[in-house]
Design a protein around this nucleic acid. Structure first.
Length: 492
DNA sequence: TTTTGAGTTGTTCGA
DNA sequence: GTCGAACAACTCAAA
C-alpha cells in the first residue's frame, strides 16, 4: 500500500486517517483494512457534520442510533489500540484540520453516494491532494457501484426488476474482508470531542425507552441479529416476510444504514444458507432481492440527488397535495381510526422501526387517502426511523406516492382494511399496538367502524372515545385521490 | 428503428 | 370466501 516513490523512513512514520461515515465497523471495512496493511499509524475520525451544504442533519431516532454505534465502535477500536477522534463541524474544515494536527500523510475512506456527500468528498479529495495528502476511497456500502449498472440505452434503470437482473449480471459481490488482526495504532495527540458532549440522545423527555428495548446498535448487535435471522425466520422468508406480527424480517436495516454491518457480509452469510431444498434457495433469493431494493434506492439517489425534495416524475409537480391539518397529526400519532395504520405508526413511534409491509400501507394512506404531500410523511419517517437513510426513505415514499421509479400506475391505492385482513389475518399485530381493540373479534378488527353496536359493546369499544372514528371514509379518500390524479393526467 | 408483450410489493367487481 | 378478469400507465428488452 505504501507509495514506493516516497522515502519509507519518512512515509511510514506519518499516520493515515480513516474517516468513517456510514461504515461504523471494524469488520469488512476496506479503508481500515488498507490502512492496517500500510503499516502506518492509524487514526480513526468521525465527523458530526450538520453544517455542510446538501448533507441532511440526522433525525432524532438516527441520532440515538449513532450514539450507540459510536460508543461500541470506540470500545472495539480501543481494543485494537486505535484511537477514535470525534469532531463536529463541516467536513471541509474538520478533516484537513485533523490531518494537520496528526501530521497525516494520507486519508482513506469508504465511498458515499448521496449528492451532497459526493460533492463534499470530491472537494476534499482535491483540497487534500493539493496539500500533498494522499486520498484513497473504497467500495464498502453498496454491492454494486451506481455507475456500473446501466440499461441498454446507457441510462440508469427506473424499474426494479430489470435493474436487479442487470446488476446481478455484472457479477457476484466480493467476499467480505477479514478483520485486521493487528493495527498500528496512532499514539500521538489529537483533540477529540466527548461523545456525550454531542447530546445525540435527549433525556428531558426520555423517548428512547422503546428503542433501547428493541435494539443493540453496533457490530456485535448486528452479528447477533444476523445469526438469529439466518437460523430462524430465513427459512420462511419467502412466504412470511409480509406478515408484520412476529419476527419474519431480518431487522438489519439500521445496521446497514450506519454500516454496523457490511452488505457484503450479509449477502454472503445468507448465500451460504442457500443449500438443500428449493425452499432455502428461494428464501435467500428473496432476501437478496430486498438487499437489491436498498441498492436500487441508492442508485436512484446517485442519479437524482434531489430525490428527497423533488418528484422523480416531474409531471407530479402541480399535484394538489396538502401539507397539514388534524388528519396529518392523527396519522403521526397513530390516531387515524384505521387499525393497521395506527398500529404501524405506534410501532414506529415506540421502536423507531416499522415492518416494511405496514410502511407501504401507512404511506399510501397518507398520500392517497389523505392527499398529503409525500414529503410530509418522508420528513416524519426521517425523524422517527432508526434506519432512515438519504436514499431508501425518499425513494420508498416516492414509490408509494406514485411519483417515483416504478412502472405501476398511480392508481394503485392500498386498501388498509384488505391489507390488514390479508397480512395480519389473526390480528396479532393490531392487537399488540392498538390494545384498545384487543377484544374485537377478527371479523371486525380491521374495520371497527363497520362493526355492529353489540359487537363493539362486547369488546368494550366506544368509537370516538376509546378508539377514534376514521379520519376519512376509505371509499371517499380513494375516489378523491383518483380524481386528483385524473386532473393531473388531463392537464399533461 | 419501431413494435410488441411481459411485468408491476394492488383493488374491485362479478360469477 | 375465492378466483379470474379488468383496470391502469409506464418501463424495458426482445423481436
Amino acid at each position: 500500500m505504501s507509495d514506493p516513490a516516497e522515502s519509507p523512513a519518512v512515509s511510514l512514520d506519518r499516520p493515515v486517517v480513516i474517516w468513517l461515515r456510514d461504515d461504523l465497523r471494524v469488520a469488512d471495512n476496506p479503508a481500515l483494512a488498507a490502512a492496517a496493511e500500510s503499516g502506518r499509524p492509524v487514526l480513526v475520525l468521525y465527523v458530526l457534520d450538520e453544517a455542510s451544504d446538501g448533507i441532511r442533519p440526522l433525525g432524532g431516532a438516527a441520532r440515538w442510533w449513532l450514539a450507540g454505534s459510536l460508543a461500541t465502535l470506540s470500545e472495539r477500536l480501543a481494543r485494537l489500540g486505535v484511537p477514535l477522534v470525534l469532531r463536529r463541524g463541516p467536513a471541509a474544515e474538520v478533516v484537513p484540520a485533523v490531518v494537520a494536527e496528526a501530521k497525516a500523510a494520507a486519508v482513506f475512506w469508504n465511498r458515499r453516494y448521496g449528492g451532497g456527500e459526493v460533492a463534499v468528498d470530491r472537494a476534499l479529495k482535491a483540497a487534500l491532494g493539493a496539500a500533498d495528502v494522499a486520498v484513497k476511497s473504497f467500495q464498502a456500502s453498496l454491492l454494486y457501484e451506481p455507475w456500473r449498472v446501466r440499461n441498454g440505452e446507457d441510462r440508469p434503470y427506473r424499474v426494479f426488476s430489470p435493474f436487479w437482473r442487470a446488476a446481478r449480471a455484472t457479477g457476484e459481490p466480493r467476499r467480505p474482508l477479514p478483520t485486521p488482526a493487528e493495527i498500528n495504532g496512532f499514539r500521538g495527540r489529537v483533540a477529540s470531542d466527548g461523545l456525550a458532549d454531542w447530546r445525540l440522545t435527549t433525556t428531558r423527555p426520555d423517548w428512547a425507552g422503546g428503542l433501547r428495548e428493541t435494539w443493540e446498535p453496533g457490530e456485535a448487535g448486528a452479528e447477533a441479529r444476523l445469526s438469529a435471522f439466518l437460523d430462524g425466520a430465513l427459512a420462511r422468508y419467502a412466504d412470511d416476510r409480509d406478515v408484520p406480527a412476529g419476527t419474519t424480517t431480518s431487522m438489519l436495516s439500521p445496521y446497514l444504514r450506519f454500516g454496523d454491518i457490511s452488505p457484503f457480509r450479509v449477502w454472503h452469510a445468507a448465500a451460504a444458507r442457500a443449500v438443500g431444498g428449493g425452499r432455502m434457495v428461494r428464501a435467500v433469493e428473496k432476501f437478496h432481492a430486498e438487499l437489491g431494493w436498498r441498492e436500487f434506492a441508492w442508485h436512484l439517489l446517485h442519479h437524482a440527488p434531489d430525490l428527497a425534495r423533488r418528484n422523480f416524475q416531474p409531471r407530479f409537480d402541480d399535484f394538489p397535495w396538502g401539507t397539514a391539518g388534524d388528519a396529518v397529526e392523527a396519522w403521526r400519532r397513530g390516531r387515524t381510526g384505521v387499525p393497521i395504520v395506527d398500529a404501524g405508526m405506534r410501532q414506529l413511534w415506540t421502536t423507531g422501526w416499522m415492518h416494511n409491509r405496514v410502511r407501504m400501507v401507512v404511506a399510501s394512506f397518507l398520500v392517497k387517502h389523505l392527499l398529503v404531500d409525500w414529503r410530509v410523511g418522508e420528513a416524519w419517517f426521517w425523524d422517527t426511523l432508526v434506519d432512515a437513510d438519504a436514499a431508501n426513505n425518499p425513494a420508498s415514499w416516492q414509490w408509494v406516492a406514485g411519483t417515483g421509479a416504478d412502472a405501476a400506475p398511480y392508481v394503485r391505492v392500498f386498501n388498509p382494511v384488505l391489507q390488514g385482513e390479508k397480512f395480519d389475518a389473526d390480528g396479532g399485530y393490531v392487537r399488540r399496538w392498538v390494545p384498545e381493540l384487543a377484544r374485537m373479534p377478527d371479523a371486525w378488527l380491521q374495520k371497527p367502524w363497520e362493526a355492529p353496536a353489540d359487537v363493539l359493546a362486547t369488546a368494550g369499544v366506544r368509537l370516538g372515545r376509546d378508539y377514534p372514528k376514521p379520519v376519512i371514509a376509505l371509499a371517499d379518500g380513494r375516489a378523491r385521490a383518483l380524481a386528483a390524479f385524473e386532473r393531473i393526467r388531463a392537464a399533461a
